[in-house]
Design a binder for these strands. Structure first.
Lengths: 116, 116
DNA sequence: CAAGTTGTTCTAGTTGAGCTAGAGTAATTA
DNA sequence: TAATTACTCTAGCTCAACTAGAACAACTTG
């Protein structure tokens, strides 16, 4: 499982981890039932604190992407869904936003408003 | 111009202001050339510090939505654009994300990745 | 059963972004 | 000239994020 974090980024480390893992579940790089590295292990390999990784795992559990069990570890949840249409929709809205010279912040803020 | 902020929200006050004003420019409630309240004035009416409002104005200037001039105030920039398609695309991607039980955070993170 | 693995929970200290406050400066308008 | 208004600078406060260490509970493995 490939992951990277940027300590200098404005987005929190735990959010970067969440985003990275979630994206891999959605695009299929991580598949149902697959086991993730132990939190302590991933933390060391990314040079990040264990608690930061654990927080990310817990967010992903709350969102339904992971199953967490003591002793067993973190496993990609069985969440039967087809993300193909979503990916097309995302590509389309991003292209349109680019055409209008909107920043990523502007677009995501608009989407957040539409989500209310 | 209607605006409201929630001091208890996780999203920063200045971001809430930016999002609110930007959304009104995009949906046409605020139109090109229209003058916004003076920063001091808006700050008082929202019970927020002047610097917070000024920061919002400056972000919106950087994004091309406002023109700022000392003595004159903040004016909606002439930015001839048609946002109709964008709004349709946003509605579509939000509907799809809802259908897939994605949180707003999850969707915006995916979009941010697609924007890179 | 015993030992090892791994997530969970708790306390605690550090750092930086966001917010507030006050004062003064510079450009524009009336 | 006087009023308006954005800009800049300093300074202090608060809270989320991050780190660190320790103990605990559930599960697996030999």
């Amino acid at each position: 499982m490939y992951l990277s974090v940027d300590a200098g980024s404005a987005t929190p480390l735990f959010e970067q981890l969440v985003a990275g893992i979630r994206a891999q579940v959605i695009d299929g790089s991580l598949s149902q039932g697959e086991r993730l590295p132990a939190a302590r292990e991933l933390a060391e390999s990314l040079d990040v604190n264990v608690h930061t990784v654990l927080r990310s795992y817990q967010v992903l559990r709350d969102e339904g992407f992971l199953d967490l069990r003591r002793g067993r570890g973190a496993v990609v949840a069985s969440r039967v869904r087809d993300y193909a249409q979503l990916e097309r929709d995302i590509d389309r809205v991003v292209a349109e936003a680019r055409k209008l010279d909107l920043t990523a912040n502007a677009l995501t803020a608009l989407i957040r408003k539409a989500y209310e």
